[in-house]
């Protein structure tokens, strides 16, 4: 009897082969690191020369360290502010596009339209953000445009401000909102809209009573896909922001970069765990608020 026969006979072996191996990988290199980082942030690992040893006592020193960080509360508040505005901004800008492509545009051209939306997002994210620096610069396109139209006489200084960060975040995260919205709107049965019209609903009422409620799953998915990473964004504030645009992500990044070593990573882990907690809480409240019924039912 060879090994293959052994595998063929045993359901458990098969399950281990198919499910177990990949799952084991994820546990070792994804979930256990989480646990370790949690314990680490609670001061449960101590460095002894070149080794770390486990000590069974909990200390909140790293969390205290994090909250002693200058302006930390302001920073968390700002992260929220950016994430919420980015989510709202991408939603408002994306919905008409998703609606046009998913409902109005001839079925034959939809794939191409999605491809056209998608293509810029295949180009390195950092380069696109860097490109926005040219556009938002004092001598850049936006300012030139505003001056030509006579809106401003002095160029506006965008770079380094909240506005620049939010504009670039909306630009970068658009795709994560457009696609889920397109996903639900494309599947929207046009007969439902026609049915509403035959029942006397005006186009506006049809939109409010039928189209919008039926896009809730897409709105939920899109907002979470934007909100979660936006809350921890550090690349965009670094590249187009300035000293006053630091976020939660910026702390993790700069602790990693500048305070490499035990303390920095300890506080960084604490920040990361607070970040995750915020995501879970915010998502939960949001889902309850916007329409858990649709998702659950």
């Amino acid at each position: 009897m060879n090994v293959l026969d052994l595998v063929r006979r045993s359901r458990k072996l098969k399950l281990f082969l198919f499910i177990g191996i990949p799952l084991l990988y994820l546990f070792i290199f994804f979930f256990i690191p989480f646990l370790i980082a949690l314990l680490y942030s609670l001061g449960m690992f101590k460095q002894v020369v070149y080794q770390y040893i486990f000590v069974p006592r909990v200390s909140l020193d790293y969390y205290a360290g994090l909250f002693k960080y200058p302006g930390i509360l302001k920073l968390i508040q700002r992260s929220f502010y950016y994430a919420v505005l980015t989510t709202l901004g991408t939603f408002i800008l994306s919905y008409p596009i998703a609606y046009y492509i998913g409902v109005k545009l001839d079925r034959r051209y939809r794939d191409t339209a999605v491809l056209i939306i998608f293509t810029p997002f295949w180009i390195n994210f950092l380069l696109r953000v860097y490109g926005m620096r040219f556009i938002l610069h004092e001598a850049g396109l936006v300012n030139t445009f505003l001056r030509l139209l006579g809106f401003v006489s002095e160029p506006i200084k965008f770079l380094g401000t909240d506005l620049a960060v939010i504009i670039v975040m909306i630009y970068s995260y658009m795709i994560f909102m457009v696609l889920p919205l397109y996903g639900v709107l494309e599947k929207l049965d046009v007969e439902l809209l026609e049915a509403a019209a035959t029942l006397g609903a005006t186009p506006l009422k049809t939109f409010l009573r039928v189209t919008l409620p039926l896009s809730i799953p897409g709105i939920l998915a899109g907002s979470l896909l934007v909100f979660i990473p936006a809350l921890g964004e550090f690349v965009i504030p670094e590249l187009v922001g300035g000293p006053n645009t630091a976020t939660l992500g910026t702390i993790i990044y700069s602790l990693f970069l500048r305070v490499r070593g035990v303390t920095g990573w300890g506080i960084g882990s604490a920040a990361a765990l607070i970040y995750i907690t915020m995501i879970v809480v915010a998502s939960y409240i949001y889902m309850r608020f916007v329409g858990g019924e649709v998702v659950l039912g």
């Binding site: 994820l26 290199f29 994804f30 256990i32 690191p33 989480f34 370790i36 980082a37 680490y40 690992f45 070149y50 080794q51 770390y52 979470l224 979660i228 990473p229 809350l231 921890g232 550090f234 992500g249 993790i252 990044y253 990693f256 990573w265 960084g268 882990s269 990361a272 970040y275 995750i276 995501i279």
Partner: peptide
């Protein structure tokens, strides 16, 4: 892994690798 923000994944993995030596 698709939902968790990358910066969190990255930092926790780093801590894990360093602690295990």
């Amino acid at each position: 892994p698709i939902i968790i923000p990358e910066i969190v994944e990255a930092l926790t993995l780093l801590v894990f690798l360093v602690i295990l030596g």
